[in-house]
Amino acid sequence: MNELTKKFSRQRTLLLMSLPFVIHLIIFRYIPITGWVMAFQDYKPARPLLSQRWVGLEQFRILFSDPAFYRILRNTLAMAAIKLILGTAFSVLVAVLINETKSKWGRKSVQTISYLPHFVAWVVAANIVLNVLSPDSGPLNNLLMGLGLIKEPVLWLGEPGYFWHIIGWSHVWKECGFGAIIYLSAMTAIDPQIYEAADIDGARRLQRIRYITLPGIKATFIILLIMNIGHLLDAGFEQQYLLQNGLVQDYSEVFTIYILKYGMKMMRYSYAAAAGIFKSVVSIILIFSANRLAARMGEETLI
């Protein structure tokens, strides 16, 4: 028996346990990839995949020659980056604050309240955002007018320059509490003795956060960052779709909306598949580069 088979038989139970998930992955993640051949065809429904007309790279040519494509790429990357940076920063901040709260009641209630919006579907959440930002006595306009900062109500959602802000900050509101949970659990894994030792050495609260808590969650932080970078081309769909309007469409349309509008809705499945392939390839490149970068910096890596 060589080394490998021995190792296998030793971890038999573990391997068996993971088997269903591997099968699930193969069925739902790998087999559908065969549908990619569509991107090289002029696919019409109700006909077998192999008796379709082949068009080579025509779909990609159409995609890359659409002037809207580059605008949409910009919007997608920009909004995803904004969401990633703001979302991560605020999740860590909330986690640190909750971690530093001594009263158990305070921790629990802050945590529950902050992650509750995560469970609200965007359809509902978008309505809340619309109402908060309403120029017709919405709370935000009322507040700013009450403070004397603005004279007239602002049409927040109608101004292209504000749209990315609205996407970023509504994402923070909805997701930072939930994102904090993972960081919080990483913090509980930090050995309390380190904190005690720091106390004895006279470390103050901010110093404890700076030198113990943050380095303690660094590994989690990096792994999550790598995973999220892979999703940079998924800037979301419902959020933009539900909050957009004609006035801001040059800044609100993301990849998924474009695929829906010019692909799926027109039954141009091949076109949608081509756009999907582009997205996947870029995502794979991004995730590998992030991973390489992390490895080079001597950090935890994903792959």
Partner: peptide, 12 residues
Amino acid sequence: FDPESFVADYDQ
């Protein structure tokens, strides 16, 4: 002319 027209949804 109601400026909210441009951004409101059907419910609003």
